[in-house]
Amino acid sequence: MVKEIERAGIPVVHICTVTPISLTVGANRIVPAVAIPHPLGNPKLSRGEEKTLRRKIVQTALKALSTEVSDQTIFEVD
């Protein structure tokens, strides 16, 4: 899906846990997620902490969308 969106002319960021697959399938902007069953969350944290974590990941994704890339790039969450 990620390639078709990009091919159609819209920049896309892929938030996913298994970044090697994302690299293999050809996403250009990639943000690593937490775990497969909860990519943007962590049930071990409190609701508040969890939301902060999710917000950080999403903000990294927005940063990725705002960054020029010439090749496949992984944007680590700070």
Binding site: M1, V2, E4, I5, A8, G9, I10, P11, V12, V13, H14, I15, C16, T17, V18, S22, A33, I36, P37, P39, L40, V58, A61, L65
Partner: peptide, 18 residues
């Protein structure tokens, strides 16, 4: 669905995978 995104002037997409 990307057709609709373009029509509706969506400028960026966040795609999440598990």
């Amino acid at each position: 669905f990307v057709k609709e995104l373009i029509q509706e002037n969506v400028q960026a997409v966040i795609l999440t995978s598990t």
